[in-house]
Design a protein around this nucleic acid. Structure first.
Lengths: 114, 114
DNA sequence: TCTATGGTTCACCGTATGGCAAACCATAGC
DNA sequence: GCTATGGTTTGCCATACGGTGAACCATAGA
């Protein structure tokens, strides 16, 4: 399992901030320019641009500048990559829990035959 | 959508570190004492304990001390909570992509009738 | 060409993070 | 009781993070 993965590092880090999660949540509905994305937040543009940079460097979003407006769009690959790591852990957990349940059952049967 | 969620903040933050992800990955196979968890890593115990603290405060793991050994076990709830946020985003993305596809198709039909 | 708009850069600040070494505490086992 | 073991606390350090204000750049539109 690739626990030591730079892309997971940056993706999880990017998602650890409510502002950035909100941006992702907005972008799943489609691309948007920086100003529109920044509108709902109290902070200044420089701070907001830093968040966008973090998202872009994590590969969660891609941006393109046409004229003077920069358009941001979601890059769903990274989202599914992190989702897959999580679901894999849960799958392992479930398998392990099943093993545990099976073991407990075995023990109970042995108790019966005592 | 709860983008502004302290538990998502701390969970994602906790998972943004390869050491902590490795600990989670180990704990899906079952509970383990601190020393065993720390063994694979180069860092000293104090540093490692900080990681455990982050994991515990995020709710991803729970720990209990019996005698002089502290046992750590996974708390799968938080894992599924973060997984659910991600899958929700992807679901919205898919829906939006489908809408886009439907729209494109509509446009093509309109082109045909021109 | 002038102006407003949308972004960008820069310098700075306080706090959080991730690591260390060293000293310390508490219990298991002889 | 002594010692080894497993864990904890404390103080320190360098770097990263999230924000600010001010100055700046480049293009769209009158």
């Amino acid at each position: 399992m690739a626990n030591h993965s730079a892309s997971l590092d940056t993706a999880f880090h990017a998602l650890a901030d409510p502002t950035r999660r909100a941006v992702v949540h907005r972008l799943v509905r489609g691309a948007a320019p920086v100003k529109e994305l920044a509108a709902p937040f109290e902070m200044g543009l420089p701070a907001f641009l830093k968040h966008l940079r973090v998202l872009e460097e994590s590969g969660l979003i891609a941006t393109e500048k046409r004229g003077r407006v920069r358009t941001c769009r979601l890059q769903p690959g990274r989202l599914t990559e992190t989702e897959r790591w999580l679901s894999r852990q849960r799958a392992l957990w479930d398998a392990s829990a099943e093993r545990l349940a099976a073991y407990v059952e075995t023990q109970m049967e042995e108790d019966e035959t005592e």
